[in-house]
Amino acid sequence: MHPTERAEPTGAIKMKLKTLLAKHKTALVARWVDSIVETYPPETAKFLKNKKDQFQNPVGHTIVAETKNLFDQVLEGVDREKATPFLDRIIRVRAIQEFTPSQALSFVFSMKYIIREIVGPEIDTEALDQELVDLEASLDFMALVAFDIYMSCREQVLDIRAKEVQQNAYLLLRRANLLVEKPGPRPEDS
């Protein structure tokens, strides 16, 4: 089966690794947040991390909230349907900012390095290499889902632009019979 067609969630990671990651959750998620905000210039990164108000700092707020959710997904096994809204909220923003596609999505892969960085030694001592391989496969799957979301955001931008052109000249197009009419009401009336 092609990896992107995975209907079932990736298997939940094994107990030992899960316990280990759960123990370091705060540190892991914090590093993950850092790795995303650091893709912005330093002044912006500072703002994204420090300003707490969800309305005045919507991007920072989204990054913090959704990385937590995504981390839980990693622990449980990545489910396309469940992971999509979390990924979408982060990617929807990055898809329209000044990033290349790889820059927009690299954050999913950074988790691999973060795990090695923070819990690598313990993984070694407890010989959890095989479990780590499974975990990394699950992050790869998350990256594939992320790619689909990114593409759909980009396509949406194009669709919206075309639709806006029509809306902005709606009546002129309608009068020139260039629009498909909306179904009119009660034709048999009177």
């Binding site: 912006t44 703002f47 005045q56 000044e98």
Partner: peptide, 17 residues
């Protein structure tokens, strides 16, 4: 004023402060 502009908040570009 630095973080009050919607273009800064939405673009992350510091020159929009």
């Amino acid at each position: 004023c630095a973080d009050k502009c919607h273009f800064f908040i939405g673009s992350g570009d510091p020159k929009n402060m």
